[in-house]
Amino acid sequence: MNSEKPNTDPVANELVTKGAFALYHAENAHRVAEFKKSKNAEAAIAADFDAYRSRYLRKFRDVFDSLSEQGLTVTRAV
């Protein structure tokens, strides 16, 4: 996997960011559930994700690249 290569494709970058956010949700369901109890849940979740953003971007980029190497693609459902 070559997650160190920069990707200048804005659609791919958006998919990786959204995928990273989904991965954050999946791995931190307990934290997200607690944040959802607050008045400003979306802001709390976004702030927590921002604290771990680079980790989840890297993790999802690795998954994204690995899938691409296998001939699979990540797409956005419409």
Rank of each mutant, 00 (worst) to 15 (best):
Met1Ala: 14
Asn2Met: 11
Asn2Val: 11
Asn2Thr: 10
Ser3Tyr: 13
Ser3Arg: 02
Pro6Glu: 12
Pro6Met: 10
Pro6Val: 04
Asn7Lys: 04
Asn7Phe: 10
Thr8Trp: 12
Thr8Ile: 10
Asp9Trp: 06
Pro10Asp: 12
Val11Gly: 08
Val11Ala: 12
Val11Cys: 08
Ala12Gly: 06
Ala12Ser: 12
Ala12Arg: 05
Asn13Cys: 15
Thr17Cys: 11
Thr17Met: 15
Gly19Gln: 02
Phe21Pro: 02
Phe21Glu: 06
Ala22Ile: 12
Ala22Asn: 09
Leu23Glu: 13
Leu23Tyr: 03
Tyr24Trp: 15
Tyr24Phe: 15
His25Phe: 11
His25Gln: 13
Ala26Gln: 10
Ala26Leu: 11
Glu27Asn: 12
Glu27His: 07
Ala29Phe: 12
Ala29Asp: 11
His30Arg: 14
His30Tyr: 11
Arg31Tyr: 05
Ala33Ile: 04
Ala33Phe: 09
Glu34Leu: 12
Glu34Tyr: 06
Glu34Ile: 07
Phe35Gln: 06
Lys36His: 00
Lys36Leu: 13
Lys37Asn: 05
Lys37Val: 03
Ser38Ala: 05
Ser38Glu: 06
Ser38Gly: 00
Ser38Phe: 09
Ser38Asp: 01
Lys39Ala: 11
Asn40Val: 01
Glu42Gly: 07
Glu42Trp: 07
Ala43Thr: 02
Ile45Gln: 00
Ile45Trp: 04
Ala46Tyr: 04
Ala47Asn: 04
Ala47Cys: 00
Asp48His: 08
Asp48Cys: 04
Asp50Trp: 03
Asp50Ser: 10
Ala51Asp: 07
Ala51Tyr: 00
Tyr52Met: 08
Arg53His: 14
Arg53Gly: 02
Ser54Asp: 14
Arg55Tyr: 09
Arg55Asn: 02
Tyr56Trp: 06
Tyr56Gln: 01
Leu57Phe: 09
Arg58Thr: 08
Arg58Asn: 02
Lys59Tyr: 03
Phe60Leu: 12
Arg61Pro: 00
Arg61Ser: 14
Asp62Asn: 05
Asp62Met: 07
Asp62Tyr: 07
Val63Trp: 00
Val63Gly: 02
Phe64Thr: 00
Ser66Phe: 15
Ser66Cys: 14
Leu67Trp: 11
Leu67Ile: 10
Leu67Phe: 13
Gly71Ala: 11
Gly71Cys: 10
Leu72Lys: 14
Thr75Ile: 13
Thr75His: 08
Arg76Asn: 07
Arg76Tyr: 05
